[in-house]
Design a protein around this nucleic acid. Structure first.
Length: 617
RNA sequence: CGGGGUGUAGCGCAGUUUGGUAGCGCGUCUCGUUCGGGACGAGAAGGUCGCAGGUUCAAAUCCUGUCACCCCGACCA
């Protein structure tokens, strides 16, 4: 039998667990952390591990409910996978190596290694290998809402970066990319679903380009809540609407040339003892960081691995296999080198150079200048120069000797003929974008920076997992083809925290109705008074009948305490029942977001409609 | 992983310099007076001072080690 009406829920405050506190623990600093603790939603169990109390559980349920509706509407089916997975699942993808220490490892009683899943690509791919064999079963989209584990190096900011957190992860499977049933179709559907979800959660967010994957185009988007306390920097072009994560953001065309400019002056060596940091040197020498050149040394990842594996001696270059060993990335002092961009410019994967190895090879770590490219024993160094660093003029940079910098460095004079050799020196985009950089999409426009909290990430995986693990189907021509995949994640518990970050005031949380633990809080001034009790019961009953969730504050507390707690907990509508209003034939109605105005007395008969109207806004 | 900080009652803190029987505020419980924006009075409960060693007649306090948590950075498909 299907119920014709959706009923709300009604709970008594006194029978729930809502431990509000006047003060937050010393550990909490971020607004969402402080307020979720003070309002009795969460308690810390360990670093990045939290209890979700009844109110928080209700919010998580509301957010998950929205997510489920939109995922189902987008054609995905819900399922549930285990949090624990045998380590052998990583054999194909080697992803335990990528994750490194971030992967929780668990030994069972037989001594076998298991992982607490950080995400489920391997598990679901393994599942489908066993039950997917024909192209006719595709496309397919599956999702789950489940606890995820990541052994973060540094959990922080309460629920925003946890080691255990609630996540919705979805995976889609296709035989092709374009057209009906293809990856792009589902990807776009997920993009729309995510937009609906975060809009329904009342969040101010941006979908930003996050990474150009192997399939090309816009292969990955992050959904960022626009919020100054966010961990991530995003850049947007106000003209074209282009927006991207700082690491991924492209930079528009810039001029660069080693030629021209004023003639190089004298090269002066300045002692800078104990000052390898750019800002310190700049201050010490009285120049701006933007007048300095910074050289960051990376090593060729596979080359370094080979040296380690074969135990070669890097100090004897003649004993090494041919190939580039180090990439010298030169950026302006106020810019940050970007590993991903260096990788694409160099054409191979890189990692931060091993300090001990560099020292052994004669690099003065922290005091390296672009001129050090001339110390190349032959084909071992590749210097990549960012456009903004590839300018004539007199730069301040390292002196290639410990505790010394130089003034008056000139590319032409001090690097010379190597500049013309593209196998040794190349100008490329190798740094993070920054506020004020030219837009990559709209000539003349400048990028502006903002902060964001990443609440969702959608990704075109291609055949990365199906190739690694062997997930194939037979196509109509009876040929075995690898399955094309996409994956789509939403941090549910993080979204809850992001809602609080975005919507609170000095007194507490202000929930949007869609995710609030309850829609209406009925504050009964004298819970023992039969008249008040009856009025509360009547209103609660009809609200519940209209699908509204109601919390009744029936505690025998002083009014001040109840009002303070009401503001703290942040339920969108407050109905206060007391003698004052009852004598006037009504109850007091107040929306949480109306912080300035006083409550309004409305007739008892109208109270329910006022609540419904306020919730529907 | 590097740098900094903190562990004393449920929460916030003092006490540690100079070793000598464990304190304050909030909260909790009881009684009374109160009752529309975190009341008042009287009384009560609650702490192996993170843990383990050591020094000492005596350790929250001094020494050594260790663990946990927080902040900044590195890291974060």
């Amino acid at each position: 039998m299907i119920s014709a009406t959706r009923h709300g829920e009604s709970h008594a405050w006194s029978r729930s667990l809502i431990p509000t506190t006047r003060e937050a623990p010393n550990d909490a600093e971020t607004p969402s952390h402080v307020l979720l603790h003070r309002a009795g939603y969460i308690r810390q169990v360990g670093a990045g591990i939290y209890d979700y109390l009844p109110l928080a559980t209700r919010v998580l349920r509301k957010i998950s409910g929205i997510v489920r509706e939109e995922m189902d509407a987008a054609g995905a089916s819900e399922m549930l996978m285990p949090a624990l997975e045998p380590f052998e699942l990583f054999e194909g993808t080697r992803r335990h190596e990528d994750y490194g220490d971030n992967l929780f490892r668990v030994k069972d009683r037989k001594g076998r290694l298991n992982a607490l899943a950080p995400t489920h690509e391997e598990v679901i791919t393994h599942l489908l290998i066993g039950c997917l064999s024909s192209y006719k079963a595709l496309p397919l989209a599956l999702y789950q809402v489940q606890t995820k584990f990541r052994d973060e190096a540094r959990p922080r900011a309460g629920l925003l970066r946890c080691r255990e957190f609630l996540m919705k992860d979805a995976y889609s499977f296709h035989t092709h990319v374009e057209g009906p049933g293809g990856l792009n179709e589902t990807y776009d559907a997920m993009h729309r679903a995510y937009t609906n979800i975060f809009r329904r959660c009342g969040l101010d967010f941006s979908a930003v380009e996050a990474e150009s994957g192997p399939i090309g185009g816009s292969a990955s988007h992050e959904f960022m809540v626009n919020c100054p306390s966010g961990e991530d920097t995003i850049l947007r072009c106000p003209v074209s609407g282009y927006a991207a994560n700082v690491e991924k953001c492209e930079i528009g065309a810039r001029e660069s040339s080693f030629e021209g400019g004023p003639p190089a002056g004298e090269l002066t060596v300045v002692p800078t003892p104990g000052l390898p940091a750019i800002d310190d040197v700049a201050r010490f020498m009285g120049v701006k960081p933007s007048e300095m050149l910074k050289v960051v040394v990376f090593q060729n990842k596979s080359f370094a691995a080979r040296i380690r594996q074969e135990k070669l001696d890097p100090r004897r270059p003649e004993s090494l296999p041919p190939g580039v060993m180090f990439v010298l990335a030169v950026v302006r002092g106020d810019h940050d080198a970007n590993e991903g961009k260096i990788k694409s410019a160099a054409g191979f994967a890189v990692e931060m150079a091993d300090a001990a190895l560099m020292e052994a090879l004669g690099f003065a770590t922290g005091f390296i200048s672009p001129a050090s490219v001339r110390n190349d024993p032959g084909g071992r160094f590749l210097m990549l120069v960012d456009h903004d660093a590839a300018r004539p003029g007199a730069w301040v940079t390292g002196a290639d000797s410990r505790d010394h910098h130089v003034k008056g460095f000139s590319w032409k004079t001090h690097v010379g003929e190597a500049l013309a050799d593209a196998s040794r020196v190349r100008v490329a985009e190798i740094r993070n974008a920054a506020e004020g950089d030219p837009s990559p999409r709209s000539p003349g426009a400048r990028l502006v920076a903002g902060r964001g909290i990443e609440v969702g990430h959608i990704f075109k995986l291609g055949t990365k997992y199906s190739d690694a693990m062997g997930l194939t189907v037979l196509d109509p021509g009876q040929k075995r083809v690898p399955v094309i995949m996409g994956c789509y994640g939403i941090g549910i518990s993080r979204t809850m925290a992001a809602c609080v970050e975005m919507s609170h005031d000095a007194d507490g949380i202000i929930w949007p109705a869609a995710v609030a633990p309850y829609h209406v809080l009925i504050v009964v001034m004298k819970p023992d008074d039969p008249r008040q009790k009856e009025a509360a019961g009547t209103i609660a009953c009809s609200l519940v009948g209209r699908g509204v969730d109601v919390l009744i504050d029936d505690r025998d507390e002083r009014p001040g305490v109840k009002f303070k707690d009401a503001d703290l907990v942040g339920i969108p509508v407050r109905v206060t029942i007391g003698d004052k209003a009852l004598d006037a034939g009504g109850v007091e109605f107040k929306r949480r977001k109306d912080t300035q105005t006083k409550g309004e007395v409305v007739p008892l008969a109208e109270a329910v409609d006022r609540c419904l109207a306020a919730i529907g806004e």
